[in-house]
Nucleic acid binder design. Structure first.
Lengths: 203, 203
DNA sequence: CTGACGTATCGGAACGGGGTCGTATCGATG
DNA sequence: CATCGATACGACCCCGTTCCGATACGTCAG
C-alpha cells in the first residue's frame, strides 16, 4: 500500500528532480528539532528554520505543506531508540544499563518536554511524536522485561512489571522539576537499585 | 523588606484605590489559568483574558505590567496543596490516600504540562511555578514520609525514600504519554501497592 | 563521449491576511 | 476625581503564497 509514500513522493524511479539530497533534508530536520528543544514548538518559525539552514522559505513550503507537517516529518526522521540492543543476559543488569543510557542523554533529548502541549492541537503531530519517540522506547523497555520473564527471573504476572516504563521515564523527567538538576546516569542507576529491582523482587 | 509587594502595591492602608476586589482579581487568575490549561502558555493572549472576563485590556495592563508577570501572579494565587492534611497514622495508608487524591484531579491540573517549556524563558515565571505548584506538593509528600520514619515504619536512611516524590509525580504524568489515558486513582493506588510500598519494605 | 540546451527547482524578496503586545485616549461611573 | 471599559493605534511578527532571475540537473544530438 506504499504507506511510506505519504511523506514525500520521492524515489519515483531513477530521476531525482528535487535538488535536496537526503543529507540536506536531514539538515533541515536537525535544525528544526534543535530549535524546538531550545525554544519550544510554538516559538519556532519557518522563517527561522529557513534562515538557520540558509534555504528559502519557498523550499520548505514546497516540500512540506505546513509547519506541523514539517515538524512531524522531522520527528519521523528521528528514530533513534536508546534502549534498543540492551541484552546482557540478566534483567537487573539490563535495567541498570538502560538507566545509564537514559542518564547520559538526559539533558539533551528534551523534545518531549518541548513539544509538550503543542501536540494536543495537531493530530498528525501527536501521532508522529508517539510513533517516533514514545512507542519505540517503551517497546524496547518492554522487550527487556519480557526476556527477564522468559528467563524466569520475574513471574509473568508480577504487579510491578506494568509500571517499570512509566517509572523510568517519569523519574527521568521529574527530577529537573523537583530538584532542579538533570537526572544523570548515577541518579538513575541508584533509582533502579533502590526501587525498581526491589519492587520486582530482585537483589 | 516588604518582599511580597512585588506583586501589586495594594493594601496600602485603608484606602482602596483600585476598584478591583480580591474576588474579581481571582476571577482574572482563574480565567488565565483555565486558558493555560486548555491551550498552553504561548497560545493565551491578554486580549483573550480580557474578553473572557469582560474587562478591558487596559485594566490588566494597569495592574500587571506584562503577560508573564500576570501569569506569575496568577500562579502565586494558586496555592492549593493536594497532599496537605493527609495523616492517617500509617505510612502505607497515607501513600494510598495521596495516590487517590492525585488520581482524582489528575486530568484537571495539567498546568505544569501546559506551562512546559515557556517557563524556561522567564525567570519570574519559573520561580512562581516552582513556589506555587511544585515545592508545596513535594514538601507535603516529604512530610508524610518524615512521619513514617518518625514512627519507625521505615529506616531514616532507606535508599528508596529519596525517590518517592519523583516516582509519584513521574508516573502520574507519564501514563497519558505512554498509554494514552489519564492516571486515575485506581491506577495510582495499584502503583503504590505494587511498587512504592514493596520498595520501602512495607506490606 | 562530449557539449549544448531545455526545464524544473532553487534562493531571494515581497505581499496580504491575520494576530499580539503594550500604549494612549476617551467618555462613563461610582 | 481616580479608575473603569471601550476602542483605536503603532510596531512588530508569522504564516503561507506568489513572483522572479539564477542555477544545476537530465537529456539528447552530434
Amino acid at each position: 500500500m506504499t504507506s511510506q509514500a505519504a511523506d514525500r513522493p520521492e524515489t519515483v524511479g531513477a530521476s531525482r528532480r528535487s535538488k535536496i539530497t537526503p543529507e540536506r533534508e536531514q539538515e533541515f530536520f536537525d535544525a528544526v528539532l534543535a530549535q524546538i528543544r531550545e525554544c519550544g514548538y510554538d516559538a519556532i518559525t519557518m522563517e527561522g528554520i529557513a534562515a538557520s539552514t540558509r534555504c528559502s522559505k519557498s523550499t520548505l513550503y514546497r516540500q512540506w505543506k505546513t509547519k506541523p507537517q514539517f515538524v512531524a516529518a522531522a520527528l519521523r526522521s528521528h528514530r533513534r531508540v536508546r534502549f534498543a540492543g540492551i541484552d546482557t543476559g540478566s534483567l537487573a543488569e539490563d535495567l541498570r544499563q538502560a538507566a545509564r543510557v537514559a542518564g547520559e542523554c538526559s539533558g539533551k533529548d528534551t523534545l518531549l518536554q518541548a513539544l509538550g502541549h503543542a501536540v494536543m492541537q495537531d493530530q498528525e503531530l501527536q501521532r508522529a511524536l508517539r510513533e517516533a519517540l514514545v512507542e519505540p522506547e517503551i517497546a524496547a523497555l518492554r522487550e527487556i522485561l519480557r526476556r527477564g520473564v522468559e528467563r524466569g527471573e520475574v513471574p509473568a504476572d508480577h504487579p510491578a512489571l506494568e509500571y517499570v516504563p512509566a517509572q523510568m521515564f517519569g523519574v527521568l523527567r521529574m527530577r529537573p522539576v523537583i530538584e532542579g538538576e538533570y537526572a544523570d546516569a548515577d541518579y538513575l542507576v541508584r533509582f533502579v537499585e533502590a526501587v525498581v529491582l526491589p519492587a520486582l523482587g530482585l537483589p
